[in-house]
Structures are given as structure tokens and as C-alpha cells.
């Protein structure tokens, strides 16, 4: 069966993208994920510009249910829930993207070098990774908050470092596979330096699983940010964050349940969106499903 498809079909790089997109577009779940993620990005980037001041208090309407003036209702201080959700999205996006970026910027080089110099460096790095994995995330976050104070910066650092082992492992695993490819042997025979091989041969060819990893890490970081903020270790009030909103909502669950529903729903949708998108990308980018 495979031999029927072995005839080369001539396509360019742009064409390859188009083919990937065509393959992606056919699947309903990843498309739904893409829509959710796009919605989340729009909310985070444009929402704060379109909604009012998230800290503006309106004492005439505290804990007000959804209405024309406040489509999602207000909280105990009469702040507009919609504006707070929008600004909270921005915080979530920052936490998700920055922490993942941090993990990638530090983790990818470590994983590359560890995988490539398997004999000397790898055992050391992998034992360090094991140690990191064994260290409870929350204890680390609490410690960090104690040192630099609870803030978005602390959240990003804590989440970034907690993602580090996964990024190192994935990169290393890919490198181990790629260094066995003949094109790497050919590069050595070409007279290429290790640096050149790592940057031009190995790194570009392990990007697919890392892209997929990002779609897993970002939603995990969104939840992580909310958790830390909910516990008071992250973003501090009055800055709006979905986690902070949940902390507040907790006290008013019976009188104003919507205060908990909105941020909860947003966390769920954003997370779901990224995960569906990630699953779709995994399917499309998987080399076994055809290059």
C-alpha cells in the first residue's frame, strides 16, 4: 500500500504549509481548539482596550447580577466583572507565554547539549532533571514568593522552572533520535562544527514536538497562575487575575455565583482550547503521518 504513495509529489515549502493546514482544517476538534485559542488571544490583547477600568468601583451596584451596564455582573466592590475577566486574560496570557518562553529559552539549549554530548554531559543533566522533578512545585513557589514577594514575576519564574524538566527531556529525546540520522553523519563528514550541527541540523528538526509541548505548557501555566494567585502567592489584588477573582468569588458563592462561574469557565475554555489545538498539531506534525 505504501508503495502506491511513494511517487514524489512536487511541492514547495509554502505548499507544505498549505498541505498541513488542509490536513488540520479537516479535523473538527483541533479547529474548535484554534477558535477558542484565537478568542482567548483576542480577549487578552483587545479586551482591556475595549472594556473600562477593572478597578473602578461602583458602590451603587455591588454583587450585581449580569445586566446591560455590567454584562457579566459586578463583584463585592462593584467592579465590572467583564473588565476584570478581560484584564485577567491578559495576566493569564502573560503568565502562560512568558513562563513557557522562559522554560524554552533555558531548557532547549540544555537539552540540545545534553543529548548531543550524551557520554559526558547527559548523565549529569538528567540526574539534575530528576532532582528538579522530585521537588514539589508548590513548595518551590511558596519559597520563591517568600524571597521575591508574591507577584506576576514570581509566578512566571516558578512556572517557568517547573516546566524546565519537561522541555529538557523532550529536547534531549529528540536530539538522541536526530543525532542518529544520516544527515547528521553527513554534516560531520562535511566538516561542520558541532555548533553548526546543533543549530542548523538538530534544532530545526526537533521543533515539532516542542511546538506541541508549548500548547501543553501554556494552559498548564494558565491554571498554575490561577492556582498561585488563588492561594495568594501570585498576582496581588487589586490587579485582576482569574485566580484572584476566584478567591473573591469564594465568599459570595451563594449570593453571586456568577463571580465564580466566569473565571472558572474562562480557565476551562482557554485550557481546553490549547489542549485541542495541541492534539491537532501533534497529529499534523507527526512525521509518521507523512511529510
Amino acid at each position: 500500500m505504501a508503495d502506491a504513495l511513494a511517487v514524489p509529489v512536487t511541492t514547495g515549502r509554502a505548499d507544505r504549509r498549505r498541505r498541513l493546514w488542509r490536513r488540520f482544517r479537516r479535523r473538527p476538534m483541533p479547529m474548535a481548539g484554534l477558535v477558542l485559542v484565537a478568542g482567548f488571544l483576542l480577549l487578552a490583547l483587545l479586551g482591556p482596550l475595549l472594556t473600562g477600568d477593572p478597578s473602578a468601583q461602583d458602590y451603587t451596584a455591588t454583587l450585581a447580577p449580569p445586566s446591560g451596564a455590567h454584562p457579566l455582573g459586578t463583584d463585592d466592590l462593584g467592579r465590572d466583572a467583564l473588565a476584570r475577566i478581560a484584564h485577567g486574560a491578559q495576566v493569564s496570557l502573560q503568565a502562560g507565554v512568558l513562563s513557557t518562553l522562559l522554560a524554552m529559552v533555558i531548557g532547549i539549549p540544555i537539552g540540545l547539549v545534553a543529548g548531543f554530548y550524551r557520554r559526558w554531559l547527559d548523565p549529569v543533566v538528567m540526574r539534575l532533571v530528576d532532582v528538579t522533578l522530585a521537588f514539589p512545585f508548590l513548595v518551590f513557589a511558596v519559597g520563591l514568593a517568600a524571597i521575591i514577594g508574591p507577584s506576576l514575576k514570581g509566578v512566571v519564574l516558578a512556572l517557568g522552572f517547573s516546566q524546565l524538566p519537561a522541555v529538557i527531556r523532550i529536547t534531549r529525546g529528540e536530539v538522541l533520535a536526530i543525532r542518529e540520522m544520516d544527515y547528521v553523519a553527513a554534516a560531520i563528514a562535511d566538516g561542520a562544527t558541532d555548533r553548526h550541527i546543533l543549530l542548523r541540523y538538530v534544532l530545526p528538526n526537533c521543533s515539532s514536538p516542542l511546538i506541541v509541548q508549548a500548547t501543553v505548557a501554556i494552559p498548564a501555566a494558565i491554571i498554575g497562575e490561577s492556582t498561585l494567585s488563588f492561594l495568594g502567592l501570585g498576582v496581588q489584588p487589586p490587579t485582576p487575575s482569574w485566580g484572584v477573582m476566584l478567591t473573591t468569588a469564594q465568599q459570595y458563592l451563594d449570593v453571586a455565583p456568577w463571580l465564580a462561574i466566569w473565571p472558572g469557565l474562562m480557565i476551562a475554555l482557554a485550557t481546553l482550547g490549547f489542549n485541542l489545538l495541541g492534539d491537532g498539531l501533534r497529529d499534523v506534525l507527526d512525521p509518521r503521518s507523512g511529510r
Binding site: D182, Y183, A185, A186, A187, G191, D194, Y201, N205
Partner: peptide, 26 residues
């Protein structure tokens, strides 16, 4: 590896697998 590098002008290789021996990104 470093000392070998300049000598690689004199010897090269042709591989078996025409698929895995060329960097797909080049």
C-alpha cells in the same frame, strides 16, 4: 573531532538511505 575536521576535505561518504541522509530543512 577537531583535528579530523581539516582532513575531511579528502574523504566523504554516500549513504544508503536517500531519505534520512539529507537535512529536510535545507
Amino acid at each position: 573531532r577537531r583535528a579530523m575536521r581539516p582532513l575531511r576535505r579528502d574523504v566523504h561518504m554516500v549513504f544508503q538511505d536517500p531519505y534520512s541522509s539529507l537535512n529536510p530543512r535545507f
